[in-house]
Design a protein around this nucleic acid. Sequence first.
DNA 1: ATGGTGGTCCTACCA
Length: 283
Amino acid sequence: MGGGARPPSAKVRPLPFTVATWNINSVRLRLPIVAQLLESERPDVLCLQETKCRDAEFPVSAIRKLGYEHVEISGQKGYHGVAILSRWRLDAATRRGFCAKGDARHICARFADGPAKDVTLHNFYVPAGGDEPDPVVNEKFAHKLAFVDEMRDWFAADGVANQRAILVGDLNIAPLEHDVWSHKQLLKVVSHTPVEVEKFVAARAAGPWFDAMRKFVPEEEKLYTWWSYRAADWRASDRGRRLDHVWTSMDLAPAAASLRVLKDARGWDRPSDHVPVLTTFDF
DNA sequence: ATGGTGGTCCTACCA
């Protein structure tokens, strides 16, 4: 420190790199607003969830025409489905089937070049879990809990978050008090029950993963990424939840440089009930 | 107040 000679500055300015995630609730129906996002924000990569179509039905050529040449998809008919749309070359993607169900809920790819070269990106769509927060009577809630347990075990065993990794997606759990509009009123509502939150925190700690969104918004401030379709006026009532997340491996926590939650997208034409979350990294 | 809306794909099921 102090008077020593500086090393030759190989890198004067960090290279910004923006990762976007969005539960699109049908990529075919909402291709116009996907294009709107890609054209207006130009993220380096966009992870989609709930694409709701088979791979052969995914609008790959339209996406490529928008400058996102590298497209990796994991789809199924009518339900679920995840995709990675990238301006940068990707190594071959991998897909993990959770709970031995064959649902298309995870895809993973590694950047082959660019500012994020060798960074691994995981894109998740965690089961919503139905309405009744009791795994004994509600098989969908039992599935959700088992899915998050399996995430935890995988992260712990395989060092998924050891280094240079980012995890995004619709995790369908709002863990913090101010990740929901009313902590008290949602304690028995699936997405904010104590049993889910406990498993969510255990899975994150198993990485260990860093909650990159809360680096930018203090835990005492409300932060939402989803507003129900059922509200008469979603903006006025503002009964949101933070269901979408951005996690990084611990070594990348300092690289996370800014966050934007595009709340206005909830008011776009034929909107998804989720909005895009954009995280910029300085690599 | 115990619904409300919006997807897929045709009859319910899922979010």
